[in-house]
Design a protein around this nucleic acid. Structure first.
Lengths: 168, 168
DNA sequence: ATCCAATCGTTTAAGTTTAAATCATTCAGG
DNA sequence: CCTGAATGATTTAAACTTAAACGATTGGAT
């Protein structure tokens, strides 16, 4: 029964890769989060500050899209960053629906210090792998990430096709 | 200045691998969670049921350790599973501190049906990669995960050494 | 035998996240 | 000008997660 065996082997291989992928990410990112919090910053706060640091002032909608988070979440994170005096909200005159988020001088100084430290820490965690392995991981994980997005789009397309054929 | 360049390249390579790793995991696992929830089960519930399914009855502490979750979290998940009639608690007579968790017949039937479906779905997501890529991902992610644990142990050891030398 | 520390499960408080409802603003068409 | 759809931000409610405090139980040391 080759089909049975083939199916099992395929699924086992895929699951095994998935489990290791998940564990590795969990392990590394929880250590990264720990290090960040010892710098007095949550991962969400770091992500927003880092985006502002590298891309300049942004409105909340753009931040949410870039970080793959909900709008409500960004509102809360920006609230907390504002309380700490690291960012400020600036209502756009041109379109008063939008609020542009700026780093304050204090916030800019902080992220300029914390970002390289954090990057070095993550690099140290990743240095369990050789340079070649890191390259290969980057390539494969990149392919998988983009593939999963494509998978989603494909399903969405099918659903749309089905819906439109139903309405006929 | 070779050192400067080397450091930057190393950090960039490591960060790039980390970002892709994180994105890929986020993407795949959120789709996996979506599929599970369409089967009427949260990821936490699935993880506990799956552990019981493959390893047999376990006490909550063992479950928490295996799933890398807090004890309080397992208490809540088991509460919800119990409410749905999928597991039952059984106080150990030998050591009355422990509560062993058993699948009910209904729960066993459910996980026996849901697990293969979910495994097939995850395999389909992972099939964006070739068999060789999956093998390579499994190997590299495994190395990284174990390496990160070792990194943690190493730090722990250092802290212990420092503490014991302080008490001298 | 008694006390003390460790272990296990539960509860509580706090933080993070999302989806959904809501409010304000903009913009396009009649 | 008005109306209604679309967009951006906020608020709310719910779920999940953790750490810490707590109570019950065990086992070992004295």
């Amino acid at each position: 029964m080759p089909t049975h065996f083939k199916g099992c082997a395929n699924i086992e291989r895929a699951l095994s890769a998935y489990i290791n992928l998940f564990r590795a990410t969990d392990s590394v990112s929880s250590k990264a989060a720990e290090q960040l919090e010892s710098s007095g910053m949550t991962t969400g706060q770091f992500a927003v500050m880092e985006a502002l640091h590298h891309l300049g002032p942004m409105c909340q909608h753009a931040i949410a899209e870039k970080l793959l988070r909900s709008g409500g979440n960004i509102t809360l994170v920006v609230d907390n960053l504002e309380k700490r005096g690291w960012v400020r909200r600036e209502r756009q005159e041109k379109d008063r629906r939008m609020v542009q988020i700026h780093l304050t001088p204090k916030g800019a100084r902080l992220i300029a210090k914390v970002f390289p430290e954090h990057a070095a820490f993550v690099a140290k965690l990743m240095s369990e792998l050789t340079a070649d392995e890191q390259e290969e991981l980057r390539r494969i994980a990149g392919k998988l990430g983009h593939g999963a997005e494509a998978f989603c789009m494909e399903r969405f397309k099918k659903e749309k096709d089905r819906d439109s054929s139903q309405t006929k």
